[in-house]
Design a protein around this nucleic acid. Structure first.
Lengths: 236, 236
DNA sequence: CGCTATGTTGATCCATATCAATAAGTGTGG
DNA sequence: CCACACTTATTGATATGGATCAACATAGCG
């Protein structure tokens, strides 16, 4: 336990909205039970169906949340530092609904679920923060569901690129943050179809060179993509 | 205000997991600000994008939660008594992500959002219950997303029928709870496609007569549908 | 008793999946 | 450091699930 744990992580964790407002001694008590581990790439951290023993916090690297059924697998989300994942299963003390694997070398903090629930029961600020976090997660999934049901794959890709462009600083050139096959899975299509979808966006000024995307005219792409804050704004 | 409000609703509301554990005077204070209204069928109660003013509780009837984009519309969920809806928007004080309309004559309790947030800030049991409710909602949407991404429409229909059959008491014959066109939209397909999907399930013993579904052999259908608790069990 | 919305069926079209082949990386071990 | 193996990306050919369009039947409902 407490493998490789360093108190230098404290301030970063403490700064997360989830932990920022809680009482100092409650935070300390949570951290006492925590341990940290650095995982190599492509390690399965959790498996759907397993009971939930830990709340995970990713400090560096990246983690893929995915789900499978009947031999198929699909990417549900990608988690990047610094954030928590599988909060709902922790709270409900339920089975994981998704599996998680590292995409690259990643440093992960593990908080025993029962500690989280115990502190949650006595710290009102923490409870408040959890509600807020869960509401954001919930609304985020609803947006994904709308994206999936109301748009074609070409429209999903166009809107994804617009979101990524904004997140990347607003330049006309930016990098895909992960493999195309994973992006395809996230968007609910096959890699072949994604390849063709990129070409389908060329009339709207999108060009691809490896992992670098260039957008000729944002307004042109927006006219096609019709982004909506009620689907594409993942901050509220 | 307080239109048609009757204290006879108190016990039913109080019995909801969301309100069951909170302090009596907090509950009273919430109820004081509440009002009730009975709406005719096909009335739009809330519109996506509007600011969230009320937490809604459905006491009788049924309500359709739907979303639209670019001229398309899709059914996200159907709400039945007695439960709350749009809790996340209430908590976040954010825009509605979905619209809601009555499917039939419905009795709805409206709790001003600011009251809900105010009580939430002072009542730990209420906060605990909200967390629980949100976690359930979140996990429910994740399951829907898995259903949409991992299954074909035929598989979604088959699993939907198995869930409905279980909910209806386990008999071999049961009724569709709503129109086929809405079911089609919920399952992410067109009405025409749903019609054909029902026929596609005939080899597995499913027969349809109007709104009555008969299943010849549950095990036979299950062999095709391959239901999974991690997708189809909407209670955890 | 019509009127209107819903459901079914058929014909056709389109988007996307699948299968197959090739090219281009990427990592590994000699 | 390079050769080899393996994974990923692209492209083409084809198959298929599902959407669309159109016609008709049917069932609620005023």
């Amino acid at each position: 336990m407490h493998i490789g744990f360093s108190e230098s992580d404290y301030p970063d964790i403490r700064a997360l909205p989830l932990f920022a407002e809680m009482a100092p001694d409650h935070f300390q008590s949570l951290m006492r039970g925590a341990y940290v581990q650095t995982f190599p790439p492509h390690i399965e951290l959790i498996t759907e169906g397993d009971p939930c023993d830990f709340l995970h916090i990713i400090m560096s690297g990246s983690v893929d949340l995915f789900a499978s059924w009947n031999g198929h697998e699909t990417c549900m989300a990608t988690v990047r530092p610094i954030s928590t994942f599988i909060l709902a299963a922790t709270i409900k003390d339920a089975q994981y609904l998704m599996s998680a694997r590292t995409l690259e070398k990643s440093r992960i903090v593990l908080l025993p679920s029962q500690d989280v629930r115990a502190i949650f029961d006595v710290d009102h600020h923490f409870a408040r923060a959890i509600v807020n976090e869960l509401a954001i997660c919930y609304r985020s999934v609803v947006k994904v569901q709308k994206d999936l049901k109301l748009r074609t794959s070409l429209e999903r890709l166009a809107n994804y690129l617009l979101r990524l462009q904004a997140r990347s600083g607003g330049g006309m050139k930016f990098e895909l943050s992960f493999e195309k096959r994973r992006l395809a899975s996230y968007l609910g299509m096959t890699p072949e179809n994604l390849s063709r979808a990129f070409k389908g966006l060329r009339p709207y000024g999108v060009t691809v060179d490896g992992n670098t995307i260039s957008i000729g005219d944002i307004e042109d792409l927006k006219r096609f993509a019709r982004p909506s804050p009620l689907i594409d704004d993942h901050s509220t």
